[in-house]
């Protein structure tokens, strides 16, 4: 019970944090961290696939409602939640996986967690930015934007895992 409450609290906290604070941050017109995706990254390993997908959809949709981009964030987050088990299976072998409860630097070790977050964040940001732009002649411009905000998001995710990983 307590565990579920924690995640529900985190869910709403991340949505409001994204909407009210992170969406107002902007460096040179390029970088805007999409930190809320950390919710999908740190859900317990044992979370069933359907629950991952549903929570991804709700998370993305929550962001969409506030930012007038109906369906855009939902599409990207559902894609990330679908890819998550695939990436985990690729990076970690089954025997090790049995001992791991929650993805994090401690449980995954730094390099694996770094690659795991990097891949999922890249998927998320590139879908988001290309879907938003939808113009071939802005290909490279969108590329730099997506890449730079992926880097910032990744830094935030790694940092917050360092800071808060003991608590959940």
């Amino acid at each position: 019970m307590n565990k579920y409450l924690k995640y529900i609290f985190l869910f709403f906290f991340l949505i409001f944090f994204q909407i009210l604070i992170l969406n107002n941050i902007e460096i040179s017109g390029y970088i805007n961290p999409y930190f809320y995706i950390i919710f999908i990254l740190i859900l317990p390993i044992e979370t069933p696939k359907w629950l991952l997908l549903i929570s991804g959809f709700l998370l993305g949709f929550g962001i969409d409602i506030f930012s007038n981009t109906l369906g855009l964030n939902a599409f990207a987050t559902v894609l990330v939640s679908f890819m998550r088990p695939v990436i985990i299976n690729l990076l970690i072998n089954k025997n090790d996986l049995e001992n791991i409860k929650i993805p994090g630097i401690k449980s995954f070790r730094f390099l694996t967690f770094f690659i795991y977050s990097l891949i999922l964040i890249l998927i998320h940001n590139f879908t988001l930015f290309y879907f938003d732009s939808m113009k071939i002649n802005e290909f490279f411009q969108t590329f730099t934007k997506a890449l730079s905000s992926s880097v910032i998001t990744l830094v935030l995710v790694i940092l917050s895992d360092f800071l808060f990983s003991k608590r959940y």
Partner: peptide
Amino acid sequence: NKSFFLFILLETISLFFVFNN
């Protein structure tokens, strides 16, 4: 393959929202 179909369903809903905005 229920999770795969759920994935397809949710993505379709999202796309529907994007293009019917």
